[in-house]
């Protein structure tokens, strides 16, 4: 596909070819480069250069406060070797888990919820029995427009153990006050709390699912009905395969988002890892290594680890996709 697209795209000519161009072509080319230069320069300076710099930093012993007093030295793979045995990244058991395990553990809860709930709501929204679909869709999508940090603060207020209305409601229905959850301050409740906060932002995923659902040909359902299929069979045998590319898309996005999970623990628990280190997600640990612990080189190495982790998981997902994702136009799964 990309090869086909590229076939029609002229590459930059060699110096010799450039000399052979007509003056008009040369001028067009110069002007083209001129027009694209703002983006090109921006990309080089603000994207490519920092990426390359971070790669270079990861092989050095650079700490920001060393400053001019102690120039960075090349240390080879030291940071990567150190990182490979850093329990704060890899540790699995106990109360103070490694940041990567924390991320995975949270993902085990948040990913299924983040996929199934919007799918469920999208199914409801797609029902032909539902009146006022537009209003419902707008209402469900609306929270997605709210800045996420504002939403996190708002949820923090609702889930405040003392003054939040959720605990007050629990007390009102008879839950003893000392039995109400301590939400974001409790090592056992903090992940469910974050998941609940995440529900706020399901509007986008719901909309994508809805688009997928509306693309399923209705004659398939009619045929299934004639064959005696019930609702579950229709969903499992028709709906799910037909929207599997959309599920896959949301899954990949969800995994990428999971590895980059940052804002909520930063805002709700001030990026401290509280309670008891339970919210020291990998991306947060990376951030702290950079900017709080001032260890730029180690942080850069962690950033590259994050990149490779996301890459590997995404590749694995794409590999598994051929077994369960159905692309109708391909004639193959």
């Amino acid at each position: 596909m990309f090869q086909e697209l590229n076939r029609g795209t002229p590459a930059l000519p060699t110096p010799r070819a450039y000399r052979e161009l007509t003056p008009l072509k040369r001028r067009e080319m110069r002007e083209g480069l001129l027009f694209i230069s703002p983006w090109l320069i921006g990309f080089l300076v603000f994207t490519l250069l920092p990426i390359l710099a971070s790669l270079a930093f990861s092989f050095m012993n650079m700490k920001i406060t060393d400053g001019i007093l102690s120039p960075p030295k090349f240390v080879g793979l030291d940071n990567y070797i150190q990182m490979a045995k850093d329990p704060q990244i890899w540790s699995i058991g106990g109360g103070t888990r490694g940041s990567l395990w924390i991320t995975v553990l949270f993902g085990a809860i948040s990913l299924p919820v983040g996929l199934m709930l919007p799918l469920f709501i999208a199914l409801l929204m797609n029902s032909r029995h539902l009146k006022g679909k537009m209003a419902f869709r707008s209402a469900f999508y609306m929270p997605y427009i709210i800045p996420f940090v504002a939403a996190v603060f708002l949820w923090g207020g609702m889930l405040n153990p003392e003054s939040g209305w959720i605990n007050r409601a629990l007390v009102a229905v008879g839950v003893p006050r000392d039995m109400t959850p301590n939400w974001a301050n409790d090592v056992n409740w903090v992940y469910p709390t974050y998941v609940i906060m995440g529900i706020w932002a399901i509007g986008n995923a719901m909309l994508i699912f809805l688009a997928g659902l509306q693309g399923v040909p209705t004659d398939l359902y009619d045929a299934a009905k004639v064959d005696g299929a019930n609702g579950w069979h229709s969903f499992w045998k028709i709906t799910f395969p037909m929207i599997s590319p959309v599920i896959f898309y949301n899954l990949v996005l969800g995994v990428v988002f999971l590895f980059q999970y940052f804002t909520v623990p930063l805002v709700v628990n001030q990026g401290t890892g509280r309670p008891g280190g339970a919210t020291m997600f990998f991306n947060l640990y990376l951030y702290k290594t950079f900017f709080t612990f001032q260890n730029m080189s180690y942080g850069a190495a962690m950033a590259w680890l994050l990149f490779f982790l996301i890459l590997v998981v995404t590749i694995i997902l794409f590999r598994t996709a051929r077994h369960w994702v159905y692309y109708a136009g391909d004639g193959k799964s």
């Binding site: 469900f140 603060f153 207020g157 405040n160 007050r168």
Partner: peptide
């Protein structure tokens, strides 16, 4: 969702638990 949007929002998240 509306309750989520309206309820209890005045109190910020528990600042460091």
């Amino acid at each position: 969702m509306l309750l989520a949007a309206c309820g209890g929002g005045a109190t910020p998240a528990p600042a460091a638990p």
